[in-house]
Design a protein around this nucleic acid. Sequence first.
DNA 1: TATTTATTGCAACAATGTTGCAATAGACAA
DNA 2: TTGTCTATTGCAACATTGTTGCAATAAATA
Lengths: 140, 140
Amino acid sequence: MLDIDNIFEKIKLDGHRLTKIRKAMIGILFADKCLLSASEIRTRLSVSGLSADRTTVYRELGFLLEKNIIKEIRIADRKTYYEIVSPEHHHHLVCTKCNSVQEIVMGNHLKRQEDRIYKKARFKVLAHSLEFYGLCRNCR
Amino acid sequence: MLDIDNIFEKIKLDGHRLTKIRKAMIGILFADKCLLSASEIRTRLSVSGLSADRTTVYRELGFLLEKNIIKEIRIADRKTYYEIVSPEHHHHLVCTKCNSVQEIVMGNHLKRQEDRIYKKARFKVLAHSLEFYGLCRNCR
DNA sequence: TATTTATTGCAACAATGTTGCAATAGACAA
DNA sequence: TTGTCTATTGCAACATTGTTGCAATAAATA
């Protein structure tokens, strides 16, 4: 899932259509390495000359989520953000001053915790969300 | 912050009033050890005979957040939940089948990661959010 | 070019959250 | 107990996010 053309191909092979809006949305999410909200995506679409209804954007996000092309992230500002699924599992460093977001890769420390949770609480962890909030290099 | 009466006292010492709704909301959040949404809190209020406007509930939640009496948690169902601030830092195990939520205490594993983040990315972590999703003991 | 149906836009709705303003009710003093 | 002050509340009105049904449109293939 590194190349945008692989994504396009996969969608077609699954019997779906490569519409202008779909291609543009994937392109926007692919190009922009930070987190984007539904309304931000919609704004970028219209900036690039493609006006899409709110409904369409949400439905397309649902489609891309289902296809595991993007994933949803909720951070402390109460909004829902989306990002392209990347091969490397990562977390986010959210600057509470300038709102910038960086990615951070963290080894398998959590995996060990999850094993412990299973032993201790009999709870089978299938996924987790971890975000760090603080001050980025520039805002410190 | 273990005793509800300490909370009441602190509020009065700060020059604020102990209204029926305020006391009831703190009582509800204090009694219920799981996460509650704004509308759930409002429902519980009216069940206990206190009808409060939506606005009032949100304003009171804002007040309690400011006073650091409660904190906000956002989990993957897109809702915002609240819980009493407890002395022990903990995380949540959210069952994706029955929606139950348990707390889990995790030592200082993340602290070590946060030091590493500072050294590596020059990002000063001030807070984090970590939730685990999976199947609880009963739903496995 | 014609056909099929996935995708889109529109209208209408639901839930969550916010703001301004006038009315109400805690807390305290007399 | 009563009066005063002002923190708190309710109401109306609004903004944002997200969803659903249905008819119109436009990709993909023959």
